[in-house]
């Protein structure tokens, strides 16, 4: 039994040396998303009257989205130049995701789709630097032209298309998919 005792003691010693529990689990790390988009802002400026600006913002996109300031109130039969801005406010200071998207413009595409009853036309005005058959639009800036008075949602989707961008929405995956309510008067 002497040898057995010795070997048990040895094993227990080895086991406790390597298995000393430090209770790491009691220090809980906060939830951290590499790529949260919390905030999306659409800013429209009338091309005929630069003093006429309209802005709408959706907050808390990564949890329960807040649409209380998300409605765009536009004038009928007007052309606006539009820019979109995305923020990650889970970080301090808030991270400007738009700037990072501009840097990787060759693999991103914003797709704006007005609801069927909404008299709104969207044309993307910026272009990436993809080689032929590119370049393709990006959609960080656009012109939006309203028609007769109407209302409905403007669906905004950001497509991530690494190595596959071809000017259409099909390739890749969605990084953002949300809706701005639009009222044209």
């Amino acid at each position: 039994m002497q040898i057995f005792k010795k070997s048990v003691l040895l094993l227990v010693a080895v086991g406790s040396l390597l298995g000393a529990c430090k209770k790491d689990e009691e220090n809980v790390a906060p939830t951290d998303d590499n790529e949260a988009i919390t905030t999306a802002t659409l800013r429209l400026t009338s091309t005929t009257n630069p003093a006429d600006t309209v802005s709408a913002t959706i907050e808390n996109l990564n949890t329960q989205a807040n649409f209380s300031r998300a409605t765009l109130n536009l004038k009928a039969n007007t052309t606006y130049s539009a820019v979109i801005q995305l923020w990650d406010k889970t970080q301090t200071p808030a991270l400007d995701a738009t700037a990072e998207i501009r840097e990787k413009a060759n693999e991103h595409l914003f797709v704006y789709t007005p609801a069927s009853g909404l008299n709104l036309r969207v044309n993307l005005t910026d272009q990436d630097t993809n080689p032929a058959p590119g370049p393709y639009p990006i959609g960080l800036s656009a012109t939006m032209t309203t028609g007769a008075a109407s209302s409905g949602d403007l669906n905004v989707v950001l497509r991530h298309q690494p190595g596959a961008k071809n000017g259409t929405a099909q390739p890749g995956t969605s990084d953002l998919d949300t809706r701005f309510p639009v009222v044209i008067k």
Binding site: D32, D33, N34, E35, L95, A97, E100, I101, E103, K104, H108, L158, H160, P162, T173, D175
Partner: peptide, 13 residues
């Protein structure tokens, strides 16, 4: 590690 779209993060998800 998931896709990262714009941040260039090297961290896992």
């Amino acid at each position: 590690y998931d896709y990262v779209a714009f941040s260039g993060s090297l961290n896992p998800e």
